[in-house]
């Protein structure tokens, strides 16, 4: 498991350049350009179960779903950040990608520290030290736990159809 570290105010153009937004929307089209202008080594180096540790206002800028789709497809276990931009935060919930707001964990991490995540109980252990984060509201968890908003929506619409 590798921890990819990025700073504050990482915007959507750095996560997925705008010039591709109307020609790439499937995960396999997104992957080669994922984080292209932020970290050219990311898309070839990322592995399932990796973590992102980021600063404040991560994902600011456009309504751009491709970085969320790409990170989910790459198998990122969670993004731990100081804070997330609003639309990015919703987009992650809607794709079932786990975002954790925990500034103390971000500040405590030193290269090489072991990170143990216990999402259910709201705990992160970094280099043996425990940090806690509040659980998501039930209404939001229901969407994430269905695997994303479309799955959640289908589950709700199906009975109406009979």
């Amino acid at each position: 498991m590798r921890v990819w570290r990025y700073g504050d105010n990482v915007n959507t153009d750095m996560l997925f350049p705008g010039k591709y937004t109307y020609t790439c929307s499937k995960p396999e089209e997104i992957m080669p350009h994922l984080l292209e202008d932020l970290d050219p080594d990311f898309s070839s180096g990322v592995k399932k179960g990796d973590l992102l540790l980021v600063g404040s206002n991560f994902g600011c800028g456009s309504s751009r779903e491709q970085p969320v789709l790409g990170l989910k497809h790459a198998g990122i276990e969670a993004i731990i950040g100081r804070s997330f931009a609003r639309i990015f935060y919703r987009a992650a919930i809607n794709q079932g990608l786990i975002l954790i707001e925990c500034p103390s964990a971000v500040d405590a991490y030193k290269d090489g520290d072991e990170v143990i995540l216990d999402i259910g109980s709201g705990r992160i252990e970094i280099g043996g030290e425990e940090h806690r984060f509040p659980p998501l509201p039930d209404a939001v968890l229901a969407i994430r736990d269905s695997g994303g908003l479309l799955e959640y929506t289908r589950k709700r619409l199906e009975p109406r159809k009979g």
Binding site: G61, S62, S63, R64, E65, V68, R86, I87, R90, A91, N94, Q95, G148, L149, L150, Y152, T153
Partner: peptide, 26 residues
């Protein structure tokens, strides 16, 4: 709106805000 600048309509006293594509689809 599935565009971040949907917030523009605050100019005419509307509460308007951006969402992602999946949410627009739902």
């Amino acid at each position: 709106g599935s565009d971040s600048h949907t917030c523009s309509y605050g100019a005419v006293n509307a509460f308007s805000t951006g969402i992602d594509r999946t949410e627009a689809a739902a």
